[in-house]
Design a protein around this nucleic acid. Structure first.
Lengths: 224, 224
DNA sequence: ACCTGAACACCGTTCAAGT
DNA sequence: ACCTGAACACCGTTCAAGT
């Protein structure tokens, strides 16, 4: 009996913090963060919800761990390349990671304690800039602008009422539906923008990202 | 008896959607969004939680309304001024509003249906740019960069493990505590940044905001 | 038309009990 | 050392019943 139970436990992989966090990320990616509960997560791992508390202090601690894993997925700046290329690639990687885990960006605001992958990432970016000759002040300026832009752009992108990966017809339809509800001329400039851009065959808001990124990189270059 | 009940109901202001939303914002500002429940909100308004459902379809609808009110607090661009001044003032106002309602920014990502104040705000910003001679494409670029930066910077600012409004000693202490836990040299560039800036007497991360804002405004000017 | 009380199907977390 | 079951104090929301 005892032996049988032990074997059943063996059959599934041992519960670890890492396995819990990865399962939680998968669930959050699929169903959204507001639907992620300790009970559902336990079920998914073949375990009672209460077992999770042997590996995570509480749910907040678990969310901290999830955010740190997401951070770890962002490419570190390549340290051979010039700083513009390195920062450009890192920014593009960061946006892709955040789009893959849409729940992560909204969680940032309330995470008090940064994890090791987060700290490593920050250290690496600062190192890349300092090595390229940035002063401490200028590295702080550059990092603040770039990260602000990356997070904010992606947040806005995620907030758009249509999926960025979907085809243009969905976008056009959506924009049309939204505008229909208003008196003509109530939001003339929004309407103009919708007709001119959002309703065009191959419009993707995400295409704006690199325009802004390059404008910022140029601005930093000039400020050096 | 019926009369008495009616009088008691009269004594408190009638329950309206607006009154509910304002009370909810006050509670979220004070205790955080995760602590805002329909039951607590009802108690605060002197009413059963279930009464709220006569004025809000559900909690998501209520959160939509709250976000729209926050949007309405952001100054619209003054339409006499040149576009740089108008955009600068609007950006500064937006950051102040978001710092006042720290829960709002994390909610944006999941709000599917923008409210009237939100639409009005967007329309007004686009109008200000178009009037200043921006092409539709250039207005879209400018708006995307500016809003991305504003949201992202403020999100980062809110995520910092110390309050921006607090005095510098708290920041210095915090930075010290964070760095203490590591092997010396584990995060050399973070350590350098902490010693050089975060631990300085009157360091405030918020001061970075206008540096980046002006860099972006200059970049847009040059792209025109 | 608006408010209420009870009920339902959930939550996160503690704790004593098991192995 | 790790897992469990029951329990506690909460949630959002529905619905029939009141006024």
């Amino acid at each position: 009996m005892a032996l049988r139970a032990k074997r059943a436990a063996k059959r599934r992989a041992a519960l670890t913090r890492g396995r819990i966090l990865r399962a939680a990320i998968t669930l959050a990616d699929r169903d959204g963060i507001e639907s992620l509960s300790m009970r559902k997560l336990g079920t998914k791992l073949g375990v009672e919800a209460m077992s999770l508390y042997n590996h995570c202090r509480n749910k907040v601690d678990m969310l901290d761990g999830m955010v740190d894993i997401v951070f770890g997925e962002i490419d570190l700046p390549a340290n051979g390349a010039d700083w513009q290329t390195a920062m450009r690639k890192r920014a593009i990687s960061a946006r892709q990671v955040l789009l893959r885990h849409p729940w992560a960006i909204g969680l940032m605001e309330s995470r008090a304690t940064p994890g090791p992958a987060t700290l490593r990432h920050h250290d690496s970016v600062l190192g890349s800039l300092r090595t390229a000759g940035f002063s401490v002040d200028m590295a702080a300026h550059a990092y603040s602008i770039l990260d602000g832009y990356i997070y904010g752009f992606t947040l806005t992108e995620l907030a758009l009422p249509f999926s960025t990966s979907e085809g243009a017809p969905a976008v056009a339809e959506m924009a049309g539906t939204i505008m229909e509800g208003f008196r003509p001329g109530q939001y003339p400039h929004l309407a103009e923008m919708a007709v001119d851009r959002a309703m065009k065959p191959d419009y993707k808001y995400g295409d704006e990202f690199e325009y802004g990124l390059d404008l910022i990189l140029d601005g930093i270059e000039r400020a050096l």
